[in-house]
Structure formats: C-alpha cells, structure tokens
Design a protein around this nucleic acid. Structure first.
Lengths: 337, 337
DNA sequence: CTGTTAGCGCATTCAC
DNA sequence: GTGAATGCGCTAACAG
C-alpha cells in the first residue's frame, strides 16, 4: 500500500488501526492513551515518516513554533544575519523560516508588510524584519526589526553604532592625509544610511575639512544601483582621492569601477566600506571596512524575539559596537591636497 | 476603523463595498468584473496593504508560487546556495522560502523528510533539498537535490566535480613536496565526502605514496565535530606535514587547532580546504582551497526546479567544475620526507 | 481509554 | 455581481 503524496494523520491512524484523534493525542502527549496503543502509534509514525503539516496545525492551534526572518532578498548582509539567528535558535525549540519577497527589490517598497501578511497569523509565531522600510506595527504579530527605516518606531530594534562607525571610517581616511573624500551613501529610507552620512559629515566638520557636495552620492546599498554612481563619482575631473562607501557592496562596486577606469587601489584611490561581510575580504586588494557584528545582531534579534514571545522583558533597543578592520584598500593619497 | 490583526479579503471587500467573491476575482484577474469595480478594489488593496494569506490560498488552490529550500541549518555553505538561488529566482514569479530544521544537527537524521512533510502539499510548490541524507522520493512533490547522500537517487541532482577537485588538492600538496598528508573527511553519508576521500586516495596512489591510515580521520563537515578530530590528528607524534580537509569549515578548524598547538601555518603545517566559502578568505593565513561554484549551484538548482515544475526537460544530473584557489595556507614541508 | 463530530481560518468557486 | 458551500489536516470537546 503505497501512500500517495503526503503522509497524513489519517494514514497513520489507518495503519495503526486507531482513530485520528488517538494519533493526535499521542503526538501531543495528551493524557488518555494506553501505553501499548501509544507505542504502536509511535512506531507507525516512525515507519511512515509522518510529520504534521505546518499549515493544518497552525490552522487549529495558532502556534507553530516557527519563527520567520523576512528579507527583501538573500544577499551577504541578510545571509550573515541568518547564520547568527540559526546558531541562536538551537535549543530554543523553535525552527526558522526565512522568507524572501522575491528579489524584485526595486519598485517593491512595502515588501515587509506584504510578506508579513502572507505568513503571519498562521504560519509563524513571530518575525524578524530585516531593513524594513514600512513598519506600521501590525497588531497580532510579535515582531523585532534589524536596522530599520528612519524615524521613530515602536518595535524592539537591533542595530549597531552606525554613527560612531562612520566617524571612525572618516577619521581613518583623514588621518591618512586625505582631504578630497567622497561619500557613497546608502538607502535613504534607512536609519543606518542616515547615520553613516551624518557620521561622515561630523568627522569632516570636526577636522575642519569642507564636504564637496559633488563628491557625495547615493548608491542605495545595492550593487546594481551603486556601480554606475561609483563610476560617475570617479570619472569626473575633480575625482576624490578616497571614498567612504556606506556598505561593503558599494565599496566593492567602487573598487571594480576604479579598476575599469585604470585607477589603482589604494595607490590612486583609497576605499573604505561598512559591514564587514565575508565578501569584503575577497576583493583585490582586500577591503578595509567598519565591522558590524552582523551574526551577533541576528542572534540578538532572535533572542529578543523569543523573549518577547515568552512574555519576558524586552529591550526597546539593542545597539552593538562597530570596529575598524584594517585590510589593504586604503593608503595615503598620492599627492596630499 | 483600525483593522486589527491581519488584513483579510473580507476587510478589503467591506471597505470597497463589494463581496469577497468579487475581490477574489479581481486578484486572480478572472472575467466578470466591471473595470470600474476592479479599479476601486485594487485601490483598496493597495491602501490596506492586503496580501493573500499563504496558508489560506494553498488550502484551496494547492499552488502558492513559493519554492522551498530545505537545509539542516544556515551555515556558510547553505548561505551561499541561498544567495545563488535568490538571484536566480528574480523574474520567475516565484518567491523563496528557506526552512531550517532547527539546527539540532546531530541526532537529527531524517530532517529533510520531516521538513518536506511539514511544508509540502500545502505551502510550497517544490523544494531544493540541501545535502539530504534520506531521499526516498516522496510522490506529489517536485524536488531537486544539491550534494545528496551516497547511492543512487532518482532526483535531479546538482553537485560539483568532487573527485577531480580532491585529486587536484592532493596533487597540489604532493607537488609542494609533502608525503605525510593527512585527510580530514566529511559526512560519511554524503556522496561528496565519499568522492573527496576517493580523490585523495587516487592521487596518492598515482604518486606512489602510501596513505597512512593513522592520518585519515572523519571530521563530519561541521566545526564542532571537526575540531577535536583535527587536534587529535595534529597532536600525535607522527603528525602530518599537510592536511587536506574535506571542507573549509574543517580546514578552518584545523588551522585553529594548529595555532593552539603552536604549529605555524604554513611553515609547520600546510592546510588545504574544499568549497571556497567566503569565510575561507578570512583565516590567518588565508586558506588555499578547492572552489565549488556554490552560488551557481544554487542558481542551477533553482532553474532545474522551475523547469521541472513547468513540465520542461529536466537533466538528471548537473555537475559543475571545481578549481584550485591558491591563497597562503600551503607551503613546502619544513624537512621533506 | 477510544472514537465521533465539529470546527479552525481564509480564499475560491459554484450556482444563482 | 453575490451568497454560501467547500477545500485541507489537524485538534478539542464530548460521547461511548
């Protein structure tokens, strides 16, 4: 008797010669089942490789023990977050479901709300939103945000010290002797991008160096958007001697653009990034960058979510430190200004 | 009127002043709705940020346009696969759902069958199984496997040329002058691990160098399992002058073990890995390794799955090439044997 | 102790 | 264009 398609609780019941109710009780270890019966049922379950359907179960019990991580797409940053969350979820009894809105990243604002709509209320007990733009808190779902949009939010939030990191990056370039420093900004709707911009300006002002508006661009954090902008920034006549890119993806795009223009990094152009995704070590030359503890951010987000779900004390805001990682993409300018 | 909890189709209907049936038709672009009505409905949908519930929809139509990637946990290898699949999914009309069995990786054999049971038939239209052990094809779900278990399988499979890669790695160490070469094997249930072992032995035999059984261990591909074994391998009196680790995680664990034992890499010990996950560039010294095109494997897996779902021709097996990536963890032995 | 029965929730799809 | 029945696998309440 080949069971066709999925194995359902009915298959198990039939094979074990009991009712579905009894099987359900065995699965959920309820009282009222003879040990002998339970034994048989468990055997059949093992035998058939039965596992209850997430959908059907959530339909009734409104509890799935599954936590969602909602991202726009799986790129280096969200992948690191996932690794961190995955290591933190072990032992909590929860499982992890990562959902990507489909990668159509552009005209796709509001993906977080839509993804949440699709999954919540039924499939997942709670969610981690990664770089969400719209966060009008939907009641009925427990949610924490990682690196969210600009403006106040009532969600528990995990981020890193973007301002201090950006100041550090800029100071580093200044200390090397750079004065014509370009800034390749991030997604303007995100608080992190705003703070990195602000940190850049603060550090420049503190050093008494004027920011040349022509050297400040928006790269949008993504390779496709950052690359043409980087090329533009470097192609002009008054090109910068150093670029602070708001994330590593943009920094990598900048290095590639420099190569195309026959500019040598770091001899002709210094580049510093932000994030320290693993990819940053793979560039030629390896990228100097500001590290965020991304995996730790993912782990913290998961812990906060579990805490919120179990009714514990939830911090409104967790901020992790950033640090400079010196590799080889920065050097003193060829002819100091 | 604050909609509480999720926005349902009923909310949309009420707000638009039509019936739920009409809304459903508009969503699925069925005939029989006046253009004016449809316009109003679409406006309300946008306004409310409505998105159909995955659960409810799959309940009726058995089609969700969601593809699953099932992994044991989110670690570097599966994360790379995810990136590749994510980039390939854009434009296909599908969305991606990655599901992790919970990270309790050990006594957890059969996770792939359980995960598949939980999600299939309802939530996802098809699945990519990553390093599955048990692959007794469940009817009713379209599935492709990446780097599956040993033995014949009737699933479309994506992998890389593990044998050639392992031969290449071993030849590289031999060419440097190493003779006492250790092998830190992978998960014995996976075909990839078997082939890497075989490639090692083939290359050794071809060079006329005997394999010292005391230098061959099983590291299981995971950090927790590989680290103690690596320590053991290096602590003994007749320690190897070079180690070929079956994946980068094991290689990194080997480098760490060497550091603890005050062995310098590569002066006292050469280490070569397999996979070329981004993390391999972050070690000190950076790891020399055999690259698999992991992202490309993820992208191919996704393409094959979509092809299978749309009834196209599906290759039984896609094998991608491997290549040596020379970094800095290998050197000639201190005193050639 | 076990079986029967009635929903759970939401989108779809008849028949009108 | 609408109302109402229906789909799914599971669980809870109660009956036997």
């Amino acid at each position: 008797m080949t069971t066709q398609g999925r194995v359902t609780i009915a298959d198990v019941a039939a094979r074990a010669g009991v009712s579905v109710a009894t099987v359900s009780k065995v699965i959920n270890s309820r009282y009222g089942v003879a040990e002998a019966t339970a034994l048989v049922v468990r055997e059949v379950i093992d035998d058939l490789g039965y596992e209850s359907s997430l959908v059907a179960r959530s339909l009734r019990s409104h509890r799935t023990n599954v936590l969602g991580i909602l991202v726009a797409e799986f790129e280096p940053f969200s992948a690191e977050l996932l690794k961190g969350a995955s290591s933190a979820v072990a032992g909590t009894g929860y499982e992890l479901l990562a959902y990507s809105a489909g990668g159509r990243a552009d005209g796709n604002a509001g993906w977080e709300r839509r993804s949440l709509s699709r999954l919540s209320g039924t499939l997942i007990d709670g969610a981690i939103l990664v770089t969400p733009t719209v966060v009008d808190v939907q009641q009925g779902v427990t949610v924490v945000a990682v690196d969210p949009h600009t403006g106040p939010s009532h969600l528990p939030t995990i981020d890193s010290d973007n301002l201090a990191g950006a100041v550090r990056a800029t100071e580093y370039l200044l200390a090397l002797g750079h004065r014509r420093i370009g800034f390749l900004g991030g997604r303007t709707d995100l608080e992190s991008a705003r703070l990195r911009d602000e940190g850049f300006r603060q550090a420049m002002a503190a050093a008494g160096v004027a920011v040349d508006p022509g050297l400040v661009r928006v790269g949008g954090y993504r390779r496709e958007t950052a690359e043409p902008v980087a090329r533009e920034l470097l192609a002009g006549p008054g090109r910068p001697s150093a670029v602070f890119a708001a994330n590593d993806i943009s920094a990598i795009a900048t290095i590639d653009a420099a190569r195309e223009l026959n500019l040598s990094v770091p001899a002709d152009l210094s580049v510093i990034g932000f994030d320290n995704v693993p990819e940053s070590a793979l560039t030629t030359p390896p990228l100097t960058t500001i590290a965020q503890p991304i995996q730790e951010m993912g782990a913290q987000a998961l812990r906060v979510l579990v805490e919120a779900l179990t009714g514990g004390e939830v911090p409104a805001h967790v901020r992790l430190p950033t640090a400079l990682v010196e590799r080889a993409s920065c050097a003193p300018p060829a002819r100091p200004a």
